[in-house]
Computed example of a mutant assay.
Amino acid sequence: MSRYKALPAELDPCARQLVERLRQLKDHGELTMRHLAAKTGYSAKSWERYLGGTSLPPREALEALARITGADPVPLIALHEIAADTWGSGRTRTAVAEPHPTTGKQEQVTLTGPTTPRATTPPATAPAVGRFPHIHIALTAGVVALAVALLAALLLVLRLDEDITPAAVAAPPSTAAASPSPSYTCRISRTDGRWSAGINEGRNDEIVYGATGADVAEAQCLLRRAGISPGGIDGMFGPLTLRAVKTFQQREGLVVDGMLGPRSWKALRG
């Protein structure tokens, strides 16, 4: 099971329950941050914030996690709706642009942090208005002018921040929208008494949980040929492929360790 940092003490109970449930689903599905990013469309950095309790995950991210882990999304959405009303209570909020997994449009995600107490300045002693009315009028006009100038400067800063922040915070298009996984096709053949899927040129390199690439796709094809489904032929050594490998090892009388080493490859190639 993954080891997480303690959740922020000021986190609302509903938000805390939502984050703890997300952690349980990730651990139960034996998913890494890289798997979450690949299968949900939200980056690994985003999932680190969601699971660390520093950012409220979008509803679409919850639905994607529930879909890949086989969980019921209704309780997650209910917790999300309650947490959304109380998230960040007593904490500062910062808007961060983050790409939507399907539309690719930038969406605002709220990050929270402890609120810093604001320093207060004792009010200056007001002049005697009745005695010097002209001074009162001049001071009032000066305060109004200063307030207008400050408001104009603030609006300008906010406008510039809206134009600059998304470009600085959002991931580049090449990484924000994850590239589609390579397409693998099983071309099962038997040469010199050995089975091959025609993907990794007959290599028997050791691969373990979390690996990706042609070697994993070759093993997935051969597992399917052996009558054991590894899920899709996507070249990702995830939970389904791990389960298929262990089932095959048990059936063949091999050490059930979930790793594809020389003996497991030899049995797969038959």
Rank of each mutant, 00 (worst) to 15 (best):
A124M: 02
F248G: 06
A128N: 15
G41M: 00
K26V: 14
L31P: 02
D205L: 11
D12N: 14
V74M: 13
L151H: 06
L7E: 09
T121V: 12
R67L: 06
R131K: 15
T125I: 08
C221F: 10
L22S: 06
W47A: 00
Y42D: 03
S179I: 04
K266S: 15
D205M: 00
P172L: 03
A84L: 10
V169T: 00
R93P: 00
T86I: 00
T115E: 14
G210R: 14
P239Y: 01
A167G: 12
Q108D: 04
R269H: 05
P172T: 05
P122S: 05
I188H: 06
K105P: 08
S189L: 06
L254R: 10
T191N: 10
S174F: 04
W195K: 01
N204I: 07
L11N: 01
P133M: 13
L62T: 02
G231Y: 05
T92K: 01
A153K: 08
I164L: 14
R203K: 10
R59Q: 08
T125A: 12
I135N: 13
C186K: 09
G53R: 03
E206M: 07
P127S: 15
T103V: 03
P8T: 04
R190S: 11
R263C: 06
L160V: 09
P114S: 14
V256G: 07
Y184N: 05
G238A: 07
T40H: 04
T110N: 12
V216C: 08
A217V: 04
E252S: 03
T247G: 03
G29A: 10
L150F: 11
A168D: 11
Y4D: 10
R263W: 10
G53C: 01
Q220F: 00
S189D: 12
T103D: 13
A177M: 08
A61V: 06
L156N: 11
S183P: 02
L56C: 11
V144K: 14
T212A: 03
S179T: 06
S229C: 11
T115F: 12
T69Q: 14
R21G: 05
R131M: 09
E30S: 13
P117L: 09
K39V: 01
T247C: 01
G193I: 11
S189A: 15
G142I: 03
V96E: 00
Q108T: 03
K105E: 09
P58C: 05
R59W: 01
Y209V: 08
R243N: 01
M33D: 12
Q250N: 04
A95K: 13
V256S: 08
D161T: 13
T241P: 04
P180S: 07
